[in-house]
Computed example of a mutant assay.
Amino acid sequence: MDAAQEFETHRPRLFSLAYRMLGSAAEAEDAVQDAYLRWHGALPGQVAAPGPWLNKVLTNLCLNRLTSARARREEYPGSWLPEPVATGGGALGPMEHAEQREAVSFAVLTLMERLTPPERAAVVLRDAFAYSHREIAGVLDCSEAAARQLYHRGHRHLSDDAPHPAPDPAQNAALLQRFLSAAADGALDRLEELLAEQVVVWADGGGKVRSAMRPVTGRNNAARFLAGLFARFTGGVRLEFAEANGLPAVLGWEGDRLTSVGSLDLGPGGVTAVRILRNPDKLAHFAAHHRPLSQNA
């Protein structure tokens, strides 16, 4: 097996690592490509164990990218949401258990933005890739005690607003069907029945398409906003179900162009969060890789 072929055997794992680190599929692919260039340029005999070597190179590439990404996201117009990834084909690994789905959920990836880049690396490497604290220390070039502290501090920041466990996909899909039906009918009473009292709606247009610039909070406000949004944007839009970040999502297509990806979080009292991705730059990767769960919604 030549060097290029061997790298391809590691590519799925590397993408999964980079996406968890960056929250962006496009940036993750770029980081993986940069790792390939490092791999291709390595001197003979420099790489004794390809897997760990590539993980360390990629993690450090992601750490560099996170530093600049944090500055860009502070100036991002409106709400920033992670890019959706089509996970039905195993792009981010197995999605058989609630913990696996929750780890790549929009809720958790959004919370990860609170962490420093080293904290995020420690959490991802330990929770998603079962690295020991000693192995994390080797990747981050710090002491084992420092790696342990980074991990525990990162988890403490995440636990402050930890999301509720991801529901069963079938339960989520059924809820999504009821939600869409109520929104399509403009039935505010039915919509409100599905929403938790303190529900929050985030819409990410990136300043490139029409979208709410601030989160919409509260059951009544959210129901009115969603019914109005549905009425404005679904004329001529084909809806389809797919799996995004481990859970069912609804896609909006205008012709052959993907224009939105929407998902729901479920908690006590009903739907606790609605996330709507409309920034076209964040939809290209999903459009190229998604696998529908069913035909038209």
Rank of each mutant, 00 (worst) to 15 (best):
A170E: 15
L266E: 03
G93E: 07
L61P: 07
L61S: 00
R224G: 03
F233I: 03
A242M: 11
R232P: 05
G186F: 05
P84G: 06
N279I: 01
V274A: 01
A122R: 01
M21G: 04
L37W: 13
Q149Y: 08
T9V: 11
M112Q: 12
L150W: 04
G45D: 10
R65V: 06
A42Q: 03
A147M: 05
A107G: 09
G267A: 15
F7H: 09
Q46V: 12
L115Y: 12
V199F: 05
Q46W: 14
R153V: 04
V139E: 05
V108F: 03
A184E: 10
G51A: 14
K208W: 14
R148K: 08
S181A: 12
L283Y: 12
A49K: 15
L258A: 04
F225N: 00
S105V: 05
G236P: 09
K282H: 15
A147R: 02
R275N: 08
R178G: 12
L111T: 05
R291P: 07
V261L: 07
T217F: 00
V271G: 00
S143Y: 15
A284E: 13
C142R: 14
A174T: 05
R114E: 14
F241G: 00
P82V: 01
A227C: 11
Q149S: 06
E8D: 13
K56L: 11
H289W: 02
F225A: 09
C142W: 04
L195Y: 12
G51T: 14
H290P: 05
P50R: 07
A48W: 15
A231R: 14
P82H: 09
L61C: 04
E74N: 06
L180Q: 10
F225K: 01
V124S: 04
R73I: 11
W53P: 01
T272Q: 06
H289F: 04
R257M: 10
G262C: 04
L194F: 04
E193V: 14
L81P: 09
E75A: 10
L266D: 00
N221Q: 12
A98D: 08
G78I: 06
L54E: 02
P77C: 05
D185A: 14
T110G: 07
Q295H: 09
H10R: 08
Q198M: 10
E83C: 08
A223W: 14
F15Y: 10
S132W: 11
A173M: 05
A147Y: 03
R153W: 02
A35F: 03
P44E: 07
H157L: 15
A86T: 01
D30N: 13
E240V: 08
E197T: 12
G207T: 13
T217A: 09
K208G: 00
T87K: 01
L14N: 03
L195C: 06
D256R: 11
R210F: 09
S79H: 03
C62K: 03
P94L: 04
L158K: 08
P94D: 13
